[in-house]
Design a protein around this nucleic acid. Structure first.
Length: 669
RNA sequence: GCCCCCGUGGCGGAAUUGGUAGACGCGCUCGACUCAAAAUCGAGUUUCUACGGAAGUGCCGGUUCGACUCCGGCCGGGGGCACCA
């Protein structure tokens, strides 16, 4: 949406009231929150985002008695600050606000509704209020608190009304300053500071002051005390409030799953009977499915929605809203795991295959898709259709491919150009078409709207799919965003050639050992396997470069032949075509793809010599080789025998020597 | 504003989680081969250096024999949420 209009159609965007279908995900809020704890193999970041999205808060809901005889329930997470309440505020949509019978009040409410919804507008929006003239009786002090309509109070969170404590909430503080309302301190670091002036709201921890029977209590104790006191009077109760809302699944569009309900004038909303499921869309080729006009083609279709009420048999209409596509992605993995032709999925197969061992997706799905899928799975478990509760045992969020953007402002509108249309040099970019400069914009996720996309087909055609695959895996770790650049692809294409040459150097007649190369080979096999398991492809690639260099330099031997064969097997997941060709070249039969990962000889994984770093005063002075497992004494003696170390010591008195076996010696003087 | 993550050469990035910072790749420089170029091969490539060394992982400080790694404060970048009481 741009300037209140759709970015594509330019249509005015407006708020409308619609009757829509919702799924009651809020009933699962507690479960979904608790379940996060069991998802150890999910990134902390994603778990935290879901936790914040669910947004559990514990507090107190209680009612004020109003001067007009009504009661006004409010919700607060800081009941401990109740003695600091100096006014009460309600949302513009609140019944109390709506009931104020004055033109000024109606004008103010209208003003509140106009307020923008963008981040910038909300951030800078001034706190505005309207004094209703009504007062609320403070349940403990008996004071009459003014009731305001305030633009910063939300109708759909809590009760739509708050007790305002300016001393300890910044919004209330700003409001109180503007309207000259009292600001009292009721939380302080210590009792001595009970009357310390407030220059801003202090939302932190402390003890209660100026708070009657709460005085001296810590924040948490005071919350418990006040809640039980209010509960005893019957004016309210401790309550948990969630940020999570129900999931609106209605879409006014054709491309979606029909929502299987029927509207009957006499029976109301009636579910489509099971034996008539699924409700299918009229085919898109149907001439009555008309996309040429905005709006939902189903609504305009002359016959599709006409049906009979399953209950009374009378004339009725189908629901024309379709389901959000997130619904489909909430359970497709169950379908993938089992493919019975006659039903959605097979519980036995699900039990065998689910949960998904390794789920991979972009971080942009951290909340919606992944939360909905968790909800859907739990809902199915609740009604006994499946046994699993969490769909994805392990989650990996890969980064996005990013690219510079190129654009120009033409008549005040931004026009974007694709990298293919642009000539990029070190000091700028020009449009190929006219040779004139274009502005180089931010490096952002590739998107069609910004045109900063590259077509992999082009470089595949030039370098081959193997080189491109290798290139994409070689540099950035997959969880990180990858700024697309083709500057490394040449090197990858070179590597393909190097490997091909190396595969030709297997010498069946060569005999003899190459202990060092054999060791390196086996270490690489073990390390690459571990890297691949950890999805650290860039590290696996680096190790394969190293082993390849070593094999190239080695003299022919049986061990070298084995090394080359191992390299081929190890690169095969990344460069399958090259590997299969090479396999044939080696005279092997069958496919690499069907060949087992090379075996590791554990005896060859350990070095018998290690490099020891020698430090003096924490700085590296020398390195030396020592047999693996050498004693501390031997290493110390070896270190002190070093000429470089002696020069650095320069006769100073040795106070201490720290020896880390197989690693280093640090001499402290 | 709140919450979270990240700052390492010219670039992408390594560093067994407190133990040789800069692996590997790209780029660049020099050399070999060539009439020449491409390809290929070899050497070098953090900075400064009186060639002994010294400094160095965003900045300032701390803990430690030893800090890219841990702690405190700042600066910069990115992401999420957003007037949620």
């Amino acid at each position: 949406m741009i300037d209140g209009k759709g970015w594509r159609s330019g249509a005015e965007v407006e708020k409308r009231k619609l009757n829509q279908w919702f799924l009651k995900i809020t009933d699962f809020a507690e479960e979904l929150l608790e379940g996060l704890g069991s998802l150890e193999n999910w990134p902390d970041k994603v778990r935290l985002m879901q936790e914040n999205w669910i947004g559990k808060s514990k507090g107190l809901e209680f009612a004020f008695d109003l001067s007009n005889g009504d009661t006004l329930p409010v919700y607060t997470t800081r009941p401990d600050t109740i003695f600091g309440a100096s006014f009460v505020a309600v949302a513009a949509d609140h019944p109390v606000a709506q009931a104020v019978d004055s033109d000024e009040a109606r004008a103010f409410i209208a003003e509140c509704k106009k307020g923008g919804t963008t981040a910038a507008e909300l951030e800078t929006a001034e706190k505005l209020g309207f004094d209703t003239g009504i007062t609320a009786k403070h349940p403990f002090t008996g004071a009459d608190l003014p009731v305001y309509i305030a633009n910063f109070v939300l109708m759909d969170y809590g009760t739509g009304a708050i007790m305002a404590v300016p001393g300890h909430d910044q919004r209330d503080y700003d409001f109180a300053i503007k309207y000259g309302l009292p600001i009292m301190r009721v939380i302080a670091a210590s009792a001595d500071e009970a009357d310390a002036p407030l220059t801003e709201a202090e939302a932190g921890d402390g003890i209660c002051v100026n708070s009657g029977f709460l005085d001296g209590m810590g924040v948490e104790d005071a919350k418990v005390a006040i809640i039980s006191r209010i509960e005893a009077t019957g004016a309210g109760e401790g309550k948990t409030v969630w940020r999570l809302r129900d999931w609106g699944v209605s879409r006014q569009r054709y491309w979606g799953t029909p929502i299987p309900f029927i509207h009957c004038a006499s029976c109301g909303v009636v579910p489509v009977p099971k034996d008539q499921l699924p409700v299918t869309l009229p085919p898109a080729e149907d001439p009555h499915v008309d996309f040429s006009v905005p709006g939902n083609p189903l609504l305009r279709h002359p016959t599709w929605k006409n049906t009979t009420c399953p209950r009374c048999g009378g004339k009725a209409e189908r629901e024309t809203d379709t389901l959000d596509t997130f619904v489909n992605s909430s359970w497709y993995f169950l379908r993938f795991a089992s493919q019975p032709a006659d039903k959605a999925f097979d519980a036995g197969e699900i039990a065998a295959w689910m949960p998904v061992d390794q789920y991979i997706g972009g971080i942009e799905h951290a909340i919606l898709h992944l939360l909905y899928a968790r909800f859907w799975t739990r809902a199915l478990a609740h009604i006994g259709l499946i046994d699993v509760k969490e769909p994805f045992a392990s989650l990996f969020t890969q980064g996005m491919v990013t690219h510079e953007t190129y654009g120009r402002k033409i008549d005040g509108r931004e026009v974007w150009y694709s990298p293919a249309e642009v000539e990029r040099s070190s000091d700028g970019a020009t449009l190929k078409e006219d040779g004139q400069p274009v502005t180089i914009g931010k490096v952002i996720k590739m998107s069609k709207s910004k045109k900063n996309v590259v077509d992999p087909e082009d470089i595949i055609a030039q370098y081959g799919a193997d080189a491109v695959r290798w290139f994409m895996l070689s540099d950035s770790p997959p969880e990180r965003d990858l700024p697309w650049s083709e500057s490394g692809i040449e090197g990858c294409a070179r590597f393909v050639q190097r490997l091909w040459r190396l595969f030709g150097e297997v010498d069946a007649a060569a005999g003899g050992e190459d202990k060092a190369l054999a060791r390196k080979t086996h270490q690489t096999i073990a390390a690459v396997a571990a890297d691949i398991e950890a999805l650290a492809f860039n590290k696996a690639v680096a190790r394969l470069y190293e082993l390849t260099s070593a094999a190239e330099k080695a003299a022919p031997s049986a061990d070298r032949n084995a090394a080359i064969r191992a390299i081929l097997l190890m690169v095969s997941p990344m460069m399958p075509h090259l590997a299969e060709e090479g396999w044939a070249k080696l005279g092997e039969s069958g496919l690499v793809a069907e060949t087992a990962w090379p075996a590791v000889d554990p005896a060859l994984l350990v070095e018998d010599e290690v490099t020891i770093a020698v430090q003096h005063k924490g700085k590296l002075r020398d390195t030396l080789t020592a047999p693996k497992g050498a004693s501390k004494e031997a290493l110390e003696a070896l270190a002190l025998a070093s000429e470089k170390v002696q020069r650095s010591l320069d006769g100073a008195e040795i106070r201490k020597v720290i020896v880390v076996p197989d690693r280093l010696v640090n001499i402290v003087t």
